[in-house]
Each structure stands twice: as structure tokens, then as C-alpha cells.
Amino acid sequence: MPHFFSNKRLILLMVGIIILVILVGLTMREREQATIPEQIMRDSVGVVQSVFQRPAYFVRDIYDDFVNILNVHEENERLKGQLNDYAMLRSEVDGLREENDSLTSLYEGMESLSSFDTIPALVIDRQPDRWTETIGINRGTQHGVETDMAVITEEGLIGRVQYTSAFTSQVQLLSDGERTNRVSAKVSSEEGDPAVGFIEGWDVDQDLLVLQKVDSENELEPGQFVSTSGLGGLFPADLPIGEIVDVQVDEYGLTQNAYIEPSADFFHLNHVLVIERNVDNIEGIQEEFLQQEEEEDESEGSDD
């Protein structure tokens, strides 16, 4: 057996291992923000990645269009069927919108918790070995993206912004099973209050999201829709997440787990929207509430 390492190399190897341990120890914790050198590296790689990615999407789109043309007839039939329901829905929506307008006008200057602006972004990298965990997008702090903003596609919620740098940022997907990655979600039911639970990761066997910690008194059924509750404080309310496929009682029998088919297509992410919550409004609403409470307190005090 030949000597793989001479003395000098052995020392170098030891120093290498020590540096490795220090670096891993420093970076393993959940960090608020990536360091400046990291941001610079990500930005410069990100620029090259977007240059590569755009023609790739272009070619892919052409391919997809070609496949779509073959399916046009089937889709047409299906859409005609749906069109019949459209007229009914339309009139119902008009009615609801009028009602909503009249009700919101009563509360002057108050916008709902679900109001937001969006920043469109392009997915520039996604590694197959971290497929369910993170993606990179080509929008950063310069475009107004901040950590913990919600990221959606047209169909539904996909994740939150984990790290930002000047021109790129990293998005943690809903399907990442990391323990700190939780989203407060609600299941809307026709009667009564919505059931509230947490989206906690991805079931690998069934390729479905898992909604956990739902009170066992709530009756869940396959086919119910799941959306964000807005109670977590980070995400606006009523962003669609998916549809329940299966419900099971958890291992202790106290709460229920629901398996959710995500409404966003996690396998073809290319254009996403970053949600900029209207924070001013939220603060305004809070202040308004506080003022009202103070006034009520004063009026109660004067009564005594």
C-alpha cells in the first residue's frame, strides 16, 4: 500500500478539516441574511444563469406549444362544457362584487389583509438534487424583494423568499421538509369557521403536500380547497395552495393530517410572482384598531 499522504499533506488535510468544521458550524444555523461575498457570488452567477435560461425557456416553450397543438381538440370539448357554468358564475360574482364594494366603502380607507402588489420574476436555477427544496429567481433587493415574502405562480402558492441579494434571491419551496418551513393554512368549509393547520413538507411516497395539526373536531373531506390563512403574519390571506386528496388521523389520534394536491405545478416552474404585502395598510389597520379601542375605553370610563 503506497503512502497516500506525506507528513506535510497530512497537516494540510487536518487544517482543511478544521476550516471545514468552522465554516459549516458558522453557516448551518438559520440565518437572517447571506453575507456580502456570498451575495456578490450569487449575483454574478445569477446574471450568467439568466443569460443561459432565457433561450432554454424559449426552446422549451416551442416544444410545449407543439405538444399542445396535438391536444387542442380534447381541450376544446372540455372547455365548452365549462363555459356553460361560466354565465352563472359571472352573475354571482357581479353580485358579490357589488356587495363587497358597498361593504368596504363603509369602512373608509380600510383595505383587507389580503391586499398586495406583485413582482414578476424568472426562475434561473433549480438543481435536480435539491429539486423539492430551493429555486433561484432573478429579482433581488434592487427590485424590492425582501426575505419572507410569499412567492406564487398563477395557480397558487409555491414558497417564500429565503435569502436575497442585490439582483437574485433564493426561494424555499413549500415542499422543503425543513422544520422551520411552515405555512399557516386553512381549509374552507361551507358551514362554520374554517379549519386551521400547518403545511409541513412533502410526502415523498405520494408526491403530495402534508397539512398537519388540524383539530380532529373539524370534518375534512377530499375535494375541499386549502389556502393560506394569513394568521402566520408573513403571507397574505387566501392565496390558493391546493385541494385535499386524502385525510388521516395522526399517530396520536389528537389531530388530523390531510394530503394536498398542490394547485401550482411544482415540476414546471419558470415564471413566478413575488408578493409584496402592503405593509402600510396593515400598520394603518392596526393603528385604527388601537384608536378605536382607546376611544371605547375612554367612553366606558366617562360612563362610570
Binding site: 435560461q53 432554454a56 434561473i124 436555477d125 433561484g136 408526491d207 415540476f267 419558470n270
Partner: peptide, 19 residues
């Protein structure tokens, strides 16, 4: 560098993993 970029960009567009 070219191969490094390709790994994260082109590969996932043209050969996405499927269920």
C-alpha cells in the same frame, strides 16, 4: 464554469424530474 451553469439551468428545463 459552463458545465456548472448547465447543471442548474438547461438540465432542469429539458429533463425535468417527473413523478
Amino acid at each position: 464554469a459552463f458545465f456548472f451553469i448547465i447543471e442548474g439551468t438547461w438540465f432542469q428545463v429539458f429533463f425535468p424530474p417527473s413523478t
